[in-house]
């Protein structure tokens, strides 16, 4: 087989996602660091103090620039929850879905920002563009609150359907607006619908309350040429076929602590793509432990359709030197995976 010439970030991403040969793995962090903890520590340990922007820090470490825009269905003027995970509606303040509705589905897309990003992607070889949308589990949860949302599957099925119907309509128009400027490489549906023992809801509930809306939005995304990934923490193994049936093409971040195993995922759904899965808890354990972790991921990564990356935000216990070492090893194994892919 001929050697693969150097790719730019977009070409590399699409090649891996489609199971085609690639030059090397992307060097990427899909999630921003804890600014108030990890980055604060690093500033004390040698990271230049003027580096505070996520993408500036990426450049400093030699990471590719995956520019992300999270488009929210709730306008910034919408009332929020009184506490983490609390409800916006049906609490003592008297808000309900009707009287907060004026604040929903009208967040403007910053087309100027997207135009600037698209220009950077044209000019540089390390830029990728993506956006995130609150998913059909996530959005109703933010409105109902965590616990009431889970009860709402039984208590308020009609309202749940209405929310997701309106969300799907808004998603389609938002996707169209972005695509007036450029075509992003991929997008994520933020869901977080699993925990360490699997999905929080049953397949029946998924099929009733989420699947119909995925089936409206996903074909629209694919028609535009945008790869479709679901972002769900926890163990998504059981739910993987559910998402695949919904047309979703990839999952992240495959948290190791939740027991996720890439070999099992590839075995269950060989056509799905995966991002993440590098056990973040190894990153402060030294070279040998980190090397073991990369070795664990290498066979799966060299098959394609898998982009290893930290399986969630880098913990604050990981020092600046730890992270530099992680990047050295990441770079080494990124090239190894590309070489292996092209010789098998």
């Amino acid at each position: 087989m001929n050697a693969i010439t150097t790719m730019n970030a977009s070409q590399r991403f699409h090649a891996i996602m489609e199971g085609r040969p690639f030059d090397r793995l992307p060097l990427v962090e899909w999630a921003a660091w804890w600014q108030d903890q990890t980055v604060v520590n690093w500033h004390q340990q040698g990271l230049p103090k003027d580096l505070t922007d996520r993408y500036d820090i990426c450049e400093h470490f030699g990471l590719e620039l995956w520019y992300q825009d999270w488009l929210r269905p709730r306008h910034w003027e919408c009332p929020g929850a009184l506490y983490h995970g609390g409800p916006i509606i049906n609490d003592e303040r008297g808000y309900n879905y009707e009287n907060i509705h004026q604040h929903l589905f009208n967040w403007p897309v910053d087309k100027q920002k997207w135009a600037q990003w698209a220009e950077k992607r044209e000019q540089r070889d390390d830029v990728l563009l993506w956006f995130s949308l609150d998913g059909f589990f996530w959005f109703p949860r933010t409105i109902f609150g965590i616990e009431n949302h889970l009860l709402a599957f039984y208590d308020e099925p009609e309202l749940m359907h209405r929310m997701n119907d309106e969300l799907a309509n808004w998603m389609i128009s938002t996707i169209d607006t972005i695509c007036e400027v450029c075509t992003p490489d991929f997008m994520t549906f933020a869901e977080d619908m699993s925990y360490n023992n699997g999905p929080m809801l049953s397949e029946d509930m998924f099929n009733e309350f989420m699947l119909p809306y995925y089936q409206r939005v996903v074909p629209h995304l694919k028609k535009k040429g945008i790869k479709v990934i679901v972002d769900s923490d926890g163990d998504i193994t059981e739910a993987l076929p559910w998402f695949e049936a919904a047309g979703v093409e990839g999952i992240l971040p495959l948290e190791r602590q939740a027991g996720v195993d890439i070999d099992a995922l590839q075995s269950i759904s060989p056509d799905m793509c995966f991002v993440g899965h590098f056990d973040k808890l190894t990153m402060d354990k030294g070279e040998e432990r980190m090397r073991q972790e990369f070795e664990r991921l290498l066979p799966a990564a060299s098959k394609g359709r898998f982009i290893p990356s930290c399986d969630h935000q880098t913990p604050p216990a990981v020092s600046y030197d730890d992270y530099k070492l992680y990047m050295e090893l990441f770079t080494e194994y990124a090239h190894k995976a590309g070489a292996l892919m092209n010789t098998t």
Partner: peptide
């Protein structure tokens, strides 16, 4: 629930 034959919503309504 432990066997993933019931999920969190079913646990919550039973508990309620």
């Amino acid at each position: 629930f432990s066997r993933n034959e019931a999920y969190v919503p079913e646990m919550l309504i039973a508990a309620r």
